[in-house]
């Protein structure tokens, strides 16, 4: 099962839980599994200002990005640069 790390400010929705292992073959499937456990959380994870990092790389595919059982998923500030 892949490990999803919750951003600090989203941990209000998880009772302080910092990370969770959930099943799924894509980021989207992971989020569906998390939403079932913490209803309403997905809107805090899928925001325009957050980018999704899978295995330490920001993915342009977002929720469509495939994940492996040992994958790490983070939600980080979306940035590009000057």
């Amino acid at each position: 099962m892949a490990t999803v790390f919750f951003p600090t400010l989203v941990r209000q929705q998880t009772g302080g839980l910092a990370q969770i292992e959930v099943p799924g073959a894509t980021v989207g499937e992971l989020i569906i599994a998390i939403e079932a456990r913490f209803p309403g959380i997905s809107k805090h994870l899928l925001r325009p200002n957050l980018a999704i990092s899978v295995d330490d790389e920001v993915t342009p595919l977002g929720v469509l990005e495939p994940v492996r059982p040992d994958s790490e998923v983070h939600f980080i500030a979306a940035i590009s640069g000057g």
Binding site: F5, S53, D56, E57, E72, H74, F75, I76, A77
Partner: peptide, 11 residues
Amino acid sequence: GTRRADGPRYK
């Protein structure tokens, strides 16, 4: 492998 505070580890 170093982990940044925002989560991801460096390649």
